[in-house]
Design a protein around this nucleic acid. Sequence first.
DNA 1: ACGCTCGCATCAGGTGGGAAACGG
DNA 2: CCGTTTCCCACCTGATGCGAGCGT
Length: 651
Amino acid sequence: MQLGEQLLGSAASLAGPPFYPPESSSARGGQRGQPSSGSPQRLDLDKGPKKCGGAGPGMLSEAEAGEPFPGAGSKQGAPDGRKAAPCGEAELPPAAARYPLDSLSPERYYLQSPGPQGAELGAPCSLFPYPAAQHGSVYQAPGGARYPYGSMLAPGGFSAAVCSPGGRAQFGGGGGGYQYGQGAAGPLYSPYPAAGSCSGLGALAVPGSGSGLRAQVFLCNRPLWLKFHRHQTEMIITKQGRRMFPFLSFNITGLNPTAHYNVFVEVVLADPNHWRFQGGKWVTCGKADNNMQGNKVYVHPESPNTGAHWMRQEISFGKLKLTNNKGANNNNTQMIVLQSLHKYQPRLHIVEVTEDGVEDLNDSSKTQTFIFPENQFIAVTAYQNTDITQLKIDHNPFAKGFRDNYDSMYTASENDRLTPSPTDSPRSHQIVPGARYSVQPFFQEQFVNNLPPARFYNGERTVPQTNGLLSPQQNEEVANPPQRWFVTPVQQPGTNKLDMNSYETEYSPSTLLPYGIKSLPLQTSHALGYYSDPTFPSMAGWGSRGYQRKMATGLPWTSRTSPPAFSEDHLPKEKVKEEISSSWIETPPSIKSLDSNDSGIYTSACKRRRLSPSTSSNENSPTMKCEDMNAEDYSKDTSKGMGYYAFYTTT
DNA sequence: ACGCTCGCATCAGGTGGGAAACGG
DNA sequence: CCGTTTCCCACCTGATGCGAGCGT
C-alpha cells in the first residue's frame, strides 16, 4: 500500500498534476450501487450527463485533441512468450503482493495534460521526455493542497511525466489525493512541453548522471497510441477482462544493470469527470466516481528482475486486462478494475528493490514513475466512437475477422481513414522527403499499419506505410520529430530470409535502438513482450509468430542507452545498420521455421482475404520484396522510419 | 532407427457486432 | 424511453500436437 501510495504521489507530483484528497469525488462514488459492473455510476452521472452538454465543446476538444492512443493487446504470445522469464504471469508476481493495488490509486486523479494538440501530438517534443520545467506552474486543486507541478521533476527538466521519488513525501499518506487536471487547467500541468519547447536532447537526463541512476522510458508503440489518441482512445472493459489495445509497451534505459527492480503499471483516473459520448464527441458529464475499488496495478510478471533484464528488451504489458468487475480483481492480478466512461491514465512505475523483491519504502528515490499522456483512454463497455472501432479492427490482429477486406481499408472515409490513402500509402514514402522518414517512427508501422498481415511482409512497408498511415498530425510529428525516434533496424546481410521478411526486422521494437546503445545478448525469445515469444510485444497487434520464427538466434539484443543524441542527423547510417543488425532478436526455441510463419500468415491472408487487385498484398507484401531487398536498401527504408518510442525520463 | 523439419489439424483465447437485458 | 451493460456469435490469431517426409 504504502508503496503504491508513494508511487502515486510521486507520480502525481512529477506528472504535474497534484494529488487531491478524494473527498469530493469519492463521496459520490460511494453512492453508486453496483460498482462491480462498472457501470458508470449513473447517480452521479445522471445529473451529469445533462450538464455535459454545455461542457462538451471544451472538453471535447481536449479529448479529441486526443492524445490517447492505446496499445495493448496481445495475446498469448507475449507474456508467455517470455517463458524464460522468471515469473510466469499466471503466478502472482511477488511484487504484486506488495503493491496493494487496491489502495493505490483508485481515488486519485491524474491530471490530464491540457494537451494542446500541438504539443501532444504534433509537437515534436512529445517524443522527448517532457520537460519538467514547463510544469512549473502550480495547480491548485479545488480544496486541495497545492502541488507544484514539476516540482518533483528532475532539475534537468526532462521528466515530463515522470514522477520522481521525492514526490512521495508530499503526498503523505493520505491516500487520497488525486490528480486533477482535466483540461481546464490545461497549461498547467501538462507534461507536454509547449510546442517546440522541447529543446533538445541536451536537456534530456542522462542515465547515471546526477545522483543516482535515472531511468528513461520509451513508449514503443507510440505511433499507434497517438493514432488512437487523436480520436480519444477507448478501451473496452468486460467482466472477464479485456486486453488493452494498443497495449503498453516500453523500453527502459538508464537502470543500474545489477540492481533489481519491480516494474508495474498503474491505471489512475486521468480527470475527475465522468465522460459521455454525445454528438460524436466525448463530453464530460458529472463527476467521476473515484471510490471505485479494485486492483489498479498490474505488476509485470517478470518482476522483480535486474536492470539489465529490463533494459535488454521491450517490456510489454500485453496481458494486462481491464475489467469492470470488482470482484475479479483481488484474485486476478492480471486485471485492473476500471469504471466505464471514466478517463484513465496508465503509469509505469519502476521501483528498485532488493534481490528478493523487497522494496525500500524509506527511500523514495528508488521509485520512478513515467506517464505518457497519449496512453490516456476512456474505459467503455462498448465502443462509442466508430473511428476507434475502426482503428481497433484495422490494427488488432484478433479483430481481423471484422475487416471486410483490405480494400475497404483504403476506401474508408478520408476523414478518419485509418489506412493510408493511395497517395499516402506504401509508396508514398517514396515521395516523401527523406527527412521525414528519418524521423518517422519505425515502429509506427507496426502499429499504425493497417495493412493486412500479408502486407507486413513487404519490405517496403516500413517506411512507406508509415508515412502513409500517419495521420496528418502524425505526419507533422514526423516532420518535426516530436520525440526521439530511433532508427529502424537494418536488415542484416547475413540474416536469412526470414529475418528479412520478419516483422521483427522491421518492426520489432528491439530493433529500434537509440543511438549509442550497445547491444546485449538476447536471452529470451524476445522482449518481455507479451505477444508471444515470437511476437513482439510491440507488435501488438500482429501475429508475430511467423516472423519471429526464424529470427536468427543469438542475435544480440541491443540495449538502449540514453537517448540524448538521437537526432537522425547524428546517426550515421552505418552505425544504425550496425545497431540494427545487432539488434536482432533471438529466436525462441519454440519458434518454428520461418516458412511456416510467413507462409502461414501470408498465405492464410491471401486465402482468407480478398486482396485488392490493385493494392494487393503482394504488391506490398514484404514477403517478396523483402527477400529481394538487399540489406542496404532495407536499411535505407528502415532508417527512414526512426522513432518509435516516446521517451520519458525521470530525473 | 533416429532426429529434425514441415505441414496440417485442433484447441484456447481474443475481437467487435448485434441483440437482449438491465437500470434509472 | 434511453443509455449502458451483458451475452452470444462468427471470425481470427497463436500455441500446440501429430504425422509425414527427409537426411543421417
